[in-house]
Design a protein around this nucleic acid. Structure first.
Lengths: 149, 149
DNA sequence: ATGAACCTTGCAGCAGCTACAAGGTCAAGA
DNA sequence: TCTTGACCTTGTAGCTGCTGCAAGGTTCAT
């Protein structure tokens, strides 16, 4: 198979495959007489595995490790489990972070009174809160000013 | 204020501030006799605003727009609202993608039987499904893009 | 023979910083 | 006064994971 064929089969692109080769995630393939990359079924399997793991959000380094682990058939799969769990942990953390973010944004947006910029609560809420002392915040907005591009 | 002081006050780093200046997010500041950057309170406010917006996940471009919008006090704040809503939409989409991912990972991990690599279900599940008969079972979650923040 | 559709290499770019290196400046202590 | 060390300056390269482009080579059909 040439690079375009394997790319279609693995649902990816030639550029990505060459990139994977460059960073050592895929072995350097055989070459045809015309210097085209010539891939085997093993190459396709390795690439497909890598793509699937990437789609699940594993980092390139994690994919590399998973591929390496897969080579030792007698080894315990505990390390595989550990990598998956670690990744799951990261995903959960990201979800929590984004959920907090969503709450903040929703609070921000819910304050919009659809007036002018001068009384915009969203911008207010983003502002440095140094001079919000006791009064309502509308009074000293010149504290920050944008100058143009 | 020199760059280190303003950095501490805005809870960021000199490198970041110089970067913001380079990309035009912050204006070029005054300079001292010794060619040190010399920041005003306005600079600090602008930077603090930018950092807060960035912490809430707004892109640099969105921050730039928000800052520009903030300059026209008479303008309607509808565009500010729109940007915030758009960002909220992105955040929600990301949360949904990550939630799908989490379910897949949990399914993967729950299959681990703690045996050898040869019988590892996690690796199995990641493998090219070329010998999974006729059921087209190749779906993947929405192509989510991992990112840092 | 010619043209399209591929392939090759190398390099630049995206976001949003971060981390150097090699030198200049400044305030404090001996 | 001199020296130390903590800052500052510029410029440049690196991070992740690709993606795109340019300039040229190959293959295949017509």
């Amino acid at each position: 198979m040439n690079i375009g064929e394997i790319a279609r089969m693995a649902n990816t692109k030639p550029e990505t495959i060459r990139y994977y080769e460059r960073i050592g995630l895929l072995p350097t393939p055989a070459r045809t007489a015309g210097n085209y990359r010539d891939y085997s079924v093993q190459d396709l399997n390795r690439l497909t595995f890598a793509r699937r793991a990437r789609d699940l959000g594993f980092s390139i380094d994690q994919v590399r490790t998973l591929l390496d682990l897969g080579a030792n058939r007698d080894h315990s799969c505990a390390s595989v489990d550990a990598i998956a769990r670690e990744h799951l942990g990261e995903v959960k953390r990201k979800i929590a972070d984004l959920a907090a973010l969503r709450r903040e944004l929703e609070a921000l947006i819910s304050q919009c009174r659809h007036g002018t910029i001068a009384e915009c609560r969203i911008l207010e809420a983003l502002k440095p809160n140094q001079d919000i002392p006791r009064q309502a915040r509308g009074r000293k907005p010149a504290a920050w000013r944008a100058e143009s591009t």
